[in-house]
Design a protein around this nucleic acid. Sequence first.
DNA 1: CTCACTGCAAATGCTTTGCACTATA
DNA 2: TATAGTGCAAAGCATTTGCAGTGAG
Lengths: 147, 147
Amino acid sequence: MTVDHAASVIAVIARLKDKGYRITAQRQAMIAQLVESGQALSAFEIWEKLKVRYKDISLDTVYRNLHVLVDLEALTPINALGKESVRYELVDTSHHHHIVCVKCGQTQCIEYCPVDPRLMLVLQTHGYELVRHNLELFGVCRQCNPS
Amino acid sequence: MTVDHAASVIAVIARLKDKGYRITAQRQAMIAQLVESGQALSAFEIWEKLKVRYKDISLDTVYRNLHVLVDLEALTPINALGKESVRYELVDTSHHHHIVCVKCGQTQCIEYCPVDPRLMLVLQTHGYELVRHNLELFGVCRQCNPS
DNA sequence: CTCACTGCAAATGCTTTGCACTATA
DNA sequence: TATAGTGCAAAGCATTTGCAGTGAG
């Protein structure tokens, strides 16, 4: 684990401690896994990867702790682009979105976000303060495009 | 049913016929329900409303036909992140998004879309042609905001 | 008359929950 | 030591599917 990664893990652990949560082996392992893999993971994927290293971790616990981490605002849930299960991403990961091909299901990260400041104003007129957003993009990829 | 509504229903039925699908009582009832209610509905909600008028309709059929109508591009699925079930909206409904309060779960329609033309260009550089998008907004509503 | 469509019931897949045990603080 | 956290097993819930009967074309 790099120094940067270690720092990220420590930051999340500090937040747990701050809110009165206990620091368990399972929580530390989950956070480390998310930091090291550097991408959004589903509960099942996290569990699958952790089973190898630390034999004692149940999928139930992964789910429970994902909720805790979302409550702490350490993770952001990313919706199930249709079929799949929810994925979780560290909040400090650079903001981006994903596009899914409606024909083959392949996905790709898009390092661009079209949400502009006017959205916040519009939401304020509705009485809402924006916390986060999730943009789901559906398109046809080069391989599936007949043109 | 108003003249406008009837026209919308006929348009979708024409598209079904065009693609070789059969026009069944259940499909007509579902389309009419979506047109008349004028909002995104879940499979369960459609089934619940139709049960009253036409006793013979199963939830399975509602699910199957929703998939058919999405394939025809007559409906757009809207994912309400994780918790709730998927909702379906007629494609000709004016484009908008929804905001969900992360505290109380209340939702509201937002008649504004922040997606600008640059997004299409960015996607093209990735080889994708955008078909549709779904923006999920999460915030805190006036009632839940402590400030 | 044929086969797409349907209802039924059972299965699936992801996620949640009750309970008794374990381990952090 | 107290109780938050855990594993296990079972339950939930939305959605899907196999099958035999029904009805649209």
